[in-house]
Design a protein around this nucleic acid. Structure first.
Lengths: 110, 110
DNA sequence: CCCACGCATCGACGTGTGTCAAATTAGATG
DNA sequence: CATCTAATTTGACACACGTCGATGCGTGGG
């Protein structure tokens, strides 16, 4: 069982082309300063969620641009949003973040 | 001391713009399937290092393209290379990888 | 019913990125 | 020095990406 979970661990065994194809886009999604901050802002916001109006103020960027970055994060599976009344609240998907952290974790699961 | 190391932890406190600007490029570097596999191949190769000729065979890509991706990884601080005779050997810089993993780690350092 | 507001989508623009072939550098070997 | 091999650099190309203004869509309030 020592190899359990190795297939997604970068340092454990060589990443297959297929794994790389699914993992890379997620890293790519957080490979932008604005999206990295968005993710952090959402994660750290009170209640674990933030509406778009809470986020746009933190950047000197237009609304459409923020919306675009949120879409990229959403399509990468890193966040999810739900509408409540006029506002749309986003929260982090912890599994996705954990998958990333695990893939970078040092070898030898246990 | 409970906040020690928080400034680079995504889930601990909101990432400053400055931190995001230095962290994002590194994630961006591994946000490509080829580079992700290259990093993994180097890390998992016998002796912890691999020469370029060990790597090119794993892809259906031209030499210059592999060389380009290695340069991106190198400039992101993720790998370093040294020449020994005709060959150039690359190895992973563990501190860089640990910095990434830490930034994704769950909140509360200790 | 209509308007105001929050947010997303669309279309366009300049810039960045992945890829290759061709040319170049650096070391080894004759 | 000539030459072969390993790897990088350069130049070119198509395509993807970040950004914005204009437009569209839901929702709640007069």
């Amino acid at each position: 069982m020592s190899n359990e979970g190795c297939t997604t661990r970068l340092l454990c065994e060589p990443l297959s082309a297929a794994r790389a194809e699914e993992l890379a886009p997620v890293f790519k999604a957080i490979g932008d300063p604005v999206r990295l901050r968005l993710l952090s802002l959402i994660a750290c916001h009170a209640g674990g969620e933030a509406c778009v109006c809470d986020l746009t103020g933190a950047f000197e960027l237009s609304g459409p641009t923020i919306s675009h970055h949120l879409k990229v994060l959403r399509e990468a599976g890193l966040i999810e949003g739900s509408r409540r009344g006029t506002w749309i609240y986003y929260r982090v998907r912890p599994e996705a973040l954990r998958l990333l952290a695990d893939s970078l974790a040092p070898a030898v699961p246990a």
